[in-house]
Design a protein around this nucleic acid. Structure first.
Lengths: 202, 202
DNA sequence: AGATATACGGAACTGCCAGTCTCGTAAACT
DNA sequence: AGTTTACGAGACTGGCAGTTCCGTATATCT
């Protein structure tokens, strides 16, 4: 196995060292004061090595903060009620880590300020999330729990927005039972209402 | 009527000129590129006059963007369903103007980065909003539409979060019928479910 | 082996912007 | 008259993202 590119290959450990440095700094000082110089210093790396790998601080932090296990499909629990709780738990786990929580608002702003291709980074998440949502809703329709599939963007906004508002707008404490469990009953009611549950008139 | 303070009094027109300049710039170039120098130049004012009135850019923009009519209590429509739509319309009108829409994410970040007293600025809105929400829910209980009052933070997160997510996370287009109307049925279902509507079992 | 291309850490440098300060001047008070 | 605060204009500071250059290391190609 040889390298088919010219020149010195990229050092392997750097990606992981940077990822660790970013997560530490996010947790310690938040997104704004997690400067690129601080990241480079903590990772024992030059800034050039960072910008060789990522286009901007926002992309760098985004890459360090995203973990693929947040993309796993929620299990089929057998009921719409359980599936809604599962989707909410996924959303919560994606937004509620100590690093993501500190990074998200600033990241939202910086990614938007950049060119379209970069802004699409965050959309990958949303597209996946929406696909799971469609799957969950369609399962419920097939089970006969819902008479029809509600409008997906509306449901998506309610689920994602509720978690985001709790954490970043209202800044309520996360309840001991978990945020997903606190929000699930209400949002199940919303979906049941929209989808026309049999025993839910109109 | 004389001035009980010493020295030259503040010029009257400046507050309004700054407010107008900020709103124009927010609409034209967004929050990040709406710089303090640009605001001062457009308003025909020195930067010192700005910082004599507000502590930071974030406070300045916040003051320029908030309009008191967004704080009016929603009318009693006679039904929970109608009141929910009213609260949603209020939230939408507070978040969906061309200026607020451009300013909100950046403002969220900058206000948080400042000292606690400044961060409380935004909370004034939330406190008012929550009071309206409590009023709406209690009215529904008194009418007999709800068996009990749902947990207010949960309802608050669902209503505010849904609007915010639609506008700033999902960035869906605002439907022709209005965002409030699109979200109201689902969120009414959520509240009805949580509050134990008579004909909504468990 | 030698040439070439890319990588590395370190550090200097550019450009932008929030926030402060200074200057000369104006408008109110005592 | 003297004091105090306001004004516009513009210089200045400090912090940070992103770029460039240096000397050096490590790979492929001829």
């Amino acid at each position: 196995m040889t390298n088919n590119r010219r020149g010195r290959p990229r050092e392997q450990g750097i990606d992981e060292a940077v990822r660790a440095a970013v997560n530490e700094l996010l947790e310690e000082v938040g997104y704004q004061r997690c400067t690129v110089d601080a990241i480079a210093a903590r990772a024992g790396v030059g800034k050039a090595a960072l910008y060789r790998r990522w286009k901007s601080k926002a992309e760098l932090v985004f890459a360090a903060v995203v973990h693929d296990d947040a993309l796993a499909a929620p299990p089929d629990t057998g009921t719409l009620r359980g599936d809604v709780a599962g989707v909410l738990a996924d959303i919560q786990s994606a937004l509620d880590g100590p690093q993501v929580r500190n990074a998200l608002p600033g990241l939202l702003v910086d990614l938007r300020a950049e060119d379209a291709p970069t802004a699409r980074l965050g959309e990958l998440f949303l597209v996946r999330e929406r696909a799971y949502l469609v799957e969950v809703l369609d399962r419920a329709v097939n089970r006969g729990e819902l008479l029809r599939r509600p409008e997906v963007p509306v449901v998506h906004a309610m689920l994602l927005g509720s978690v985001f508002a709790w954490l970043h707008l209202l800044r309520e404490a996360v309840p001991s039972g978990g945020l997903a469990e606190a929000l699930a009953p209400g949002l199940y009611g919303a979906i049941a209402g929209l989808g026309g549950v049999a025993h839910f008139p109109t």
